[in-house]
Design a protein around this nucleic acid. Structure first.
Lengths: 336, 336
DNA sequence: AGAATTTACGCAAGCGCTTGCGAAATTTAA
DNA sequence: TTAAATTTCGCAAGCGCTTGCGTAAATTCT
C-alpha cells in the first residue's frame, strides 16, 4: 500500500488538513510545523495521490495535447515547445495522437469531459467539428485550436496564415522566372485549403498572371499522395516548372517522385516545400520552405489555454501568425 | 457543473450503486433497469469522472509511455504500435517525452507513483537507473523497459539485439569488400554500446580480421554529433571505407557530412545506417539499414505490462528481438 | 492589565465513484 | 403450498485529498 496524507499526519502528530496545507505551501501553518511535516514527507517519499487531489480540488494540472499527425516533425516541434511552457507553469502534458481519425479525437475528448485534464490543445486535424463544438459548450472544457480552421469561429485558436505564406512563395518563384507554378495541398483541411489557393491566386493576379485551375492539386497530406501526384502531373497537359507543396509529408513524396523520374531540382522543377525541420533539411538539394513559427504557435496557444483555465479570457481570441519563406537552392533558377 | 452518477440515479429512481453496476456492466442488475439506466445516461451525455472512478477502484486504465527521444521516427513507430495495442485492451496511453533528461524522467515517474497510471513503458533512455529501481520496488509500480539495458537485470524488458545487428552489418560490408569499417554509436547508452562493439568485434574476428579500436566512435546520439564525427574521422590517421551508424539521428548527420565533404556514397564510403523509416528513406542514395522490429517491440512490451498489471507475471521477463539488415545501394561496392 | 487582533491548527464535510454486505423480492424446488 | 435458493437492488463505508469554518493560543494594541 501507498503512504498517504493520513500516515504523514499521524507521524507528525497533526491533522490531515495541516499536512495538506503545509505540503501545498498554503497559509495557516506555522513555520516550524511546516518544516517538520515536509521533512517527514520527504523521508517517507510521500507522493500525493493525484486522483484524490484532482477530485477534491477539481483541478489536475494536466492538459491534453491532441495531435492529428505524429509523423510531422513540425507538430513534434510544437509539442516540445508546449512541454517547456507547461513545465514552466506547473502543468503536465499528456500527449494524444489521433492519426487524423475523428473517432480517436472524440475518445480523447473525454479526457476533458471526464475531468482528467484541465484543458486541451488540438494541433491540426480535420474540419469535422460537431463533437468539438458540443464539448466547448461547457465552460469547464477549455479548448484551444492550433492550425485548424473551424467553420464557425467559436474556438479560441492560433493559426498560421497559409494564404500569406503561399503568396510569398508564388512571388518568389515568379521572381525567379518560373511561370507555371503548381500548388500541391492537402484535401483534408478544406478551409485551410481554400486559404492556400486564395494566396496562390492572389499572388498570381497581383503579378499579372492568369490562373490555371488545373495547376491546383488537392491531395491527402501524406507522402505517397505527394509521390503519386507528380506522376499524375507529368502525364497531364500542362507541365509546371515549379511546385509549391504545403505539407511536410507531401513535400517529401513529391521530391522523391521528381528524383525517381530522373528530373533535377531546381533545373527541371523548382520546389518550395513546407516545414523547416529535420525531414526537409535532409533532402538534396537544400529545400526552399515555408516555415511555421512553431515556438510562437506553442507559446500563444498555451497562453490562451492558461487564460481559459483561469477564467481570465473575456472574449474568445484568435491569433494569426505568419510563416516565413526560407530560400535555399531548390527554388533558385539557373537562368537568374 | 458536470452531471454525476447521483444525478442519473435520481432520474432513474434507483441507487447510485445500481447505476454504477449497470454502466459498468457488472452483475446484479436486472436487464430492464440496466437498459433504463443506460438510456438515461446516454440521453444526458453522462461521462463518469475518471478521477473519482480511479480513486475508488484504484485503477485508471491509463498507462504512461515514456519516450527518451521524440525526434526518432523509430520511437514514434513504436508508440503508434503501442497505441493500437492499448486501444484493443481498453487502455489509454499518455505519452511523455523526456528528451533524455533524467530529471524529466523522474518527474514523469510520479505519474506512476501518484496512481495516475496503472503502468509505464520506458522507451530508450540513459542508463541511470536509481530512480527506476527504487520505483520498481513497489509492486504497484508496473514498469517495462524497451531498448534500454539496465545494470541489474531487475526489469522486465524488451530489447533489440544490437550486437547481432552490428554483426550482420559487418559481415555484409566485408562481403562487399570493405575492410576498414568504422563503428559510430551513441555514448549515452553504455551497456548497449558495449553490445554493439561486441558484435562489431566478434564479426571482425570471425571473419579473420584485426580489430582497430580507433575505428570505434562513441558519440552523442544526435545529428550534429554524427556530422562532427565524420569531420574528425577524415582528419585522423586511419580513413575507413565504410561506416556503421547505430542510431537514426547520427546516421542523418553522418550522411550529411559525407556529402558536404564532396564524397560519394558508397563509392568513397559505404554506409549502414539505423532505422528503416521516413527519415532514413529520404536519403540519397537509398540507405542500407539495420531495422528494428518496431511492432514486435510494442506488442511484447504491452503484453508484458498487461501481465504485470494483472499480476499474471510470475517471474520477471526479458525478450530479445533481432534487427533486420535491409540492404540497399549505400553499402554495395562498385567493384562487386 | 485586559481587550482586540491575528495566527495556528483541528474538525468535518465533501469531491464522484466503487463495492461488500444485507434485505427484499422473485423464482425454483419440494 | 411452503421452504430454499437465487436474483435484484439499496445502504453505507471508503478511496485520499482539499477547504470552509470554528476555536484555542499567541500576538498586538490601548
Amino acid at each position: 500500500m501507498q503512504i498517504t496524507l493520513k500516515d504523514i499526519a499521524r507521524m507528525a502528530d497533526v491533522a490531515e488538513s495541516t499536512v495538506s496545507r503545509a505540503l501545498n505551501n498554503k497559509p495557516g501553518v506555522g513555520e516550524d510545523t511546516k518544516l517538520k511535516i515536509i521533512k517527514i514527507a520527504k523521508k517517507h517519499n510521500y507522493r500525493p495521490n493525484q486522483l484524490a487531489r484532482g477530485l477534491a480540488a477539481n483541478k489536475t494540472n494536466m492538459i491534453a495535447v491532441i495531435l492529428s499527425e505524429m509523423d510531422s516533425p513540425g507538430n513534434i516541434e510544437i509539442v516540445k515547445s508546449l512541454e517547456k511552457a507547461a513545465e514552466k507553469n506547473g502543468y503536465q502534458i499528456i500527449l494524444c495522437n489521433t492519426n487524423n481519425q475523428t473517432e480517436k479525437e472524440k475518445s480523447y475528448l473525454t479526457l476533458l469531459e471526464s475531468n482528467q485534464v484541465d484543458g486541451a490543445i488540438f494541433i491540426g486535424g480535420k474540419l469535422v467539428e460537431g463533437h468539438l463544438l458540443r464539448a466547448s459548450f461547457s465552460p469547464d472544457n477549455n479548448i484551444v485550436l492550433v492550425n485548424r480552421l473551424a467553420e464557425e469561429n467559436f474556438f479560441t485558436s492560433v493559426l498560421t496564415d497559409y494564404s500569406q505564406g503561399v503568396y510569398k512563395a508564388v512571388g518568389h518563384l515568379l521572381d525567379q522566372g518560373f511561370e507555371n507554378i503548381a500548388l500541391v495541398g492537402g484535401e483534408d483541411y478544406n478551409l485551410i485549403e481554400e486559404e492556400k489557393s486564395a494566396g496562390y491566386k492572389a499572388a498570381l493576379i497581383d503579378h499579372g498572371y492568369q490562373i490555371n485551375e488545373d495547376l491546383i492539386f488537392s491531395i491527402k497530406a501524406d507522402r505517397k499522395s505527394g509521390y503519386n501526384v507528380f506522376l499524375e502531373i507529368i502525364e497531364g497537359d500542362i507541365i509546371p516548372d515549379a511546385f509549391i507543396s504545403t505539407s511536410e509529408l507531401t513535400t517529401i513524396g513529391l521530391v522523391e517522385a521528381i528524383k525517381m523520374g530522373g528530373y533535377f531540382i531546381p533545373d527541371d522543377f523548382a520546389v518550395v516545400g513546407y516545414g523547416d525541420n529535420i525531414l526537409t533539411s535532409v533532402i538534396d538539394p537544400p529545400l526552399t520552405v515555408l516555415s511555421e513559427p512553431v515556438d510562437a504557435l506553442a507559446d500563444y496557444s498555451f497562453d490562451f489555454l492558461l487564460k481559459l483555465i483561469n477564467k481570465k479570457m473575456k472574449d474568445q481570441q484568435i491569433k494569426v501568425l505568419t510563416p516565413e519563406l526560407i530560400i535555399r537552392e531548390s527554388s533558385i533558377s539557373k537562368y537568374n
